[in-house]
Design a protein around this nucleic acid. Sequence first.
DNA 1: GCAAAAGTGTTAGAACTACACCCATGC
DNA 2: GCATGGGTGTAGTTCTAACACTTTTGC
Lengths: 234, 234
Amino acid sequence: MQNHYLNNDRILVALDCIIFGFDRRGLKLLLIKRDFEPEKGKWSLMGGFLKREESLDEAADRILHQLTGLQNVYLEQLYGFGEVDRDPVERTVSIAYYALINIREHDRELLEQYGARWFSVEDLPDLIFDHNEMVQAAKSRLKYRASHEPVGFELLPEKFTMPELQILYEGIYETELDKRNFRRRILSMDVLKKMDEKQKKYSKKGAYFYKFNKDKYQAKINNGDSLVFKPIKL
Amino acid sequence: MQNHYLNNDRILVALDCIIFGFDRRGLKLLLIKRDFEPEKGKWSLMGGFLKREESLDEAADRILHQLTGLQNVYLEQLYGFGEVDRDPVERTVSIAYYALINIREHDRELLEQYGARWFSVEDLPDLIFDHNEMVQAAKSRLKYRASHEPVGFELLPEKFTMPELQILYEGIYETELDKRNFRRRILSMDVLKKMDEKQKKYSKKGAYFYKFNKDKYQAKINNGDSLVFKPIKL
DNA sequence: GCAAAAGTGTTAGAACTACACCCATGC
DNA sequence: GCATGGGTGTAGTTCTAACACTTTTGC
């Protein structure tokens, strides 16, 4: 490989974050209005460049924090996008990350500064560069992840109801689920704690709150159980 | 994001290839003996640096070709490794790719030039930098991929026998399978063509050859069928 | 009293797992 | 004729998917 380190090209490395949120109406994505050229004024993912003295994960974290004020949230590397002309200004490789955040917990002022807005994943505007592709990849990774690990709870407040959890999974899987089968399956994993309290905001009868019992989940995993969060078709 | 392109760090981008092969004794990995400092003489994945005028996929392809003489083989991006000090010489981000090749079809002379050798995946030497981690990631990606798509055939010659296919899947999943259940499941997908010919090299009775019918598979996929190649526990 | 959302069980069919013996042939 | 690897079938169990009515309560 004649692999002297000299004489190789040094290249801009960017990070782009696909930021998912959830409210009762469905899955959301946080996009920003690009305020510089090229493509100024178009919608875009939040991004930034890798610095020499930080790791990829640290950089993604920093960039997510910049926009949302949040730290220590679910953040997973997705894919490296590396077409030669993906950025028209300069050759840039971008590593995409996706984040799952509780939509109620971010810094609204920062969002305004960046001209950011939440969009329903079913109705996204056209994005710059290859960002549409990145979003697609994030959506399918999320489907996969959600069917093997309890990532759904990252998008929900600590207390949530069964109907909310179901709407979330329906959003992730882009399909409708049968509520009897859904409840049975979720509850059979035995990692949710039912509260006495009810959510009365959205119905007269009220829906019981549940909490995800992370410790119990971890114990089961360490015990070798493989809990699956697969969807159930209607 | 104050995102002028100037004043950002340009960084070395490397590619490392986890190259899988298969022979009747199990899954193999192709490693090279590093012939330059640092870590000269240690085993390593085949790697190289991204050039400004090529895409990540092209670079991975080039590097794979350099070592094996092969092109147009199965090659999938795995993950971007980006710890600050992962390469002691200079800050380098490495995008790992894994390849599935037919172990009989590579260029033996090239291998010798690079001091390359096939190792059983169950008995790998310690590798440089974070290459051990890369191999781990590749193994689990391969498990996932093999349970959803017919990637196993990339590792086999055009004609193969059921026992061979089973050994391959056992290698990928690192588990033993029941041969009756395995055959039933594979054949029920109805994408293998049984030949009249038998492989007589490894048994007196001989085992029938099969071919993977890629067109039939594609037709089923396009038809919305979701064929699964899951393992079956013993 | 009625509208609106929450909650609850059963059943038929499919898929999964476990398991043991016969076959063909080269020596 | 026997050792070696190739090939085959069944039954019990579990999992999945389909499906409709009752409950609660604010208005």
